[in-house]
């Protein structure tokens, strides 16, 4: 499987602390999902040639693709989805995981992050959005390191 260039991996993910603050101030579902969909637009999209089956994450009713690269001990990811909401959820994962090594991960478990911003239902295994699988695959990269 051909990976995107290293340079494409080294983008700036949304800032984790800012993201947590942003969601803690949302009042309505509209606001929450508006933020989510806007966040999705802040991370890179995958060109068509990289939207291939080998990169596809299982368990998604919508298609999602994930690439990983380790550069100087840090983990970089590019992921995309053909839905706005999964893309936004991926942006949250990027804020949490992208460009970090194991020591730099936020203290809060990722499940707690989703819980605190009121999106834990999207992470549930009973959902077909595949978020749980994407999360596991990203997490796995860090587990292997330690």
């Amino acid at each position: 499987m051909r990976l995107p260039d290293n340079s494409q991996f080294q983008y700036q993910a949304p800032d984790f602390d800012e993201l947590v603050t942003l969601f803690s101030n949302t009042r309505s579902w509209q606001e929450k999902y508006r933020h989510l969909m806007l966040l999705g637009k802040q991370i890179p999209t995958l060109a068509k040639e990289y939207r291939v089956e080998a990169a596809q994450v299982d368990g998604c009713e919508s298609a999602a693709w994930l690439y990983h690269q380790q550069i100087n001990g840090k983990h970089y990811f590019i992921a995309d989805s053909d839905t706005r909401i999964v893309k936004g959820l991926i942006a949250i994962l990027m804020a949490y995981f992208h460009g970090k090594n194991t020591d730099e991960l936020p203290e809060q478990a990722i499940e707690m992050v989703f819980h605190n911003i009121g999106l834990s239902q999207q992470l549930s295994p009973s959902r077909t959005n595949g978020l749980q699988h994407i999360t596991q695959q990203m997490q796995h990269k860090f587990v292997k390191l330690t």
């Binding site: 579902w29 999902y33 706005r84 909401i85 999964v86 077909t128 959005n129």
Partner: peptide
């Protein structure tokens, strides 16, 4: 132009 799954999730919110 919209993905059916997005529609489902946003309707579920309501």
């Amino acid at each position: 132009g919209e993905h059916h799954q997005d529609i489902g999730i946003l309707l579920d919110q309501q």
